[in-house]
Design a protein around this nucleic acid. Sequence first.
DNA 1: CCCGCACGGTGACTAAATCACATAATGATG
DNA 2: CATCATTATGTGATTTAGTCACCGTGCGGG
Lengths: 220, 220
Amino acid sequence: MPPDWITRFPELAPLTPAEQKLITERAQIVSLPAQTTVFAPGLPAENFLLLLEGTVRVQQVSANGREIVLYRVAGGESCIMTTACLLSGDTYNAEGVTETPVKAVAVPKATFEDLMARSADFRRFVFSHYASRITDLLHVVEEVAFERIDKRLAQRLLDLTNAEGRLGVTHQELAVELGTAREVVSRHLKEFQRRGWLALTRGLVHVTDRRSLERLAAGD
Amino acid sequence: MPPDWITRFPELAPLTPAEQKLITERAQIVSLPAQTTVFAPGLPAENFLLLLEGTVRVQQVSANGREIVLYRVAGGESCIMTTACLLSGDTYNAEGVTETPVKAVAVPKATFEDLMARSADFRRFVFSHYASRITDLLHVVEEVAFERIDKRLAQRLLDLTNAEGRLGVTHQELAVELGTAREVVSRHLKEFQRRGWLALTRGLVHVTDRRSLERLAAGD
DNA sequence: CCCGCACGGTGACTAAATCACATAATGATG
DNA sequence: CATCATTATGTGATTTAGTCACCGTGCGGG
């Protein structure tokens, strides 16, 4: 990975050459395999992370063992939970797990604070990512509190399936996506299958009628 | 209100006298009556708000008309949703309403950005408030997704009642607190009353057995 | 005084979550 | 390849929550 990775982050383009140099010189590029825990309750945040490749799933684990996916961080984005820890010292009940092999830029805390002090553009960059995560969280609250499971499940299937309509997940994993119980997902999937919208095999969902799922997700 | 309001915010004490002067000179103290909308979807954020007295309730309104309270901002805290708008330009689906008469300090956007540039302590102050709001939102997600209504209702009653155990709210307002339906709240309240934990009159809940509500809220 | 309206009560129904299992597919191992 | 443990999925019964439709009641303003 050449040091011109910074071009991946258009919001960092307005930084002066000196500021850009500060980042690229001090930052380390790290590679993580899939299924690695990036952060978790109790772990201190050491670095400001900018994702280059891959995705990180951020989810909340509750006291009674249930889980819900909050959002995903993809290439070109920053990992806000660690940033929040960096800046406040608080820790969160959320954990981050790589879903694919991940390449990321780790900016040391000192360099991060230096940049926050020097560059208004860098501050804007950090805050705008912060703001989108808050938007994501508000969206999760809205969905969990007010939307029907079948609608949310349909939407998730549309979001997660690949170009061929295939998605390698278990019902349990889909249940975590929505913060519900596995049986609930199984029953809705079966109903979708009965309607001919998808095919189910162990660990795999194959969406065959995207249109119908879209209609349900849109609330008709 | 004398200009030494800044002593209400211990995190701002480390600022240099010049920086403190910058805030106190540029900022305006505003008074708002109860039930005023401080911010809402579509309204641009003009100022960075620091609350001196009173409380602001932040709630989300969903497309289908239902609502849920996200958190409250009290004296000595900053209003992060407006800050987020300030810094990112995004708008949120959340709205803020004063619950009591409110006195707040409004720091103009330009002064806010100036301070963000100059003072590491001010940045820490802003970010730590940001972080606590994210924690609040995570808590809401956890409760809505995983906790039982009776437990959440008991907890809310304990949080909201005054020293004498009285709380002037309608069942509908309690439903908004929890993001549920009025009938659900009515039925649980009636059951609490049947158990002798509280007394109900129109628009008023009077908690008489705090201990039992605490046991339920704790999950026994 | 009475009219209108916000507030609360309630039954019937649907949706979701929980519990307790049963069955099926898969991969590892002797 | 047969067996076995493990993981994934299926399903009925029950409880809890949300929805719908409607009713009665108390309260304040005209």
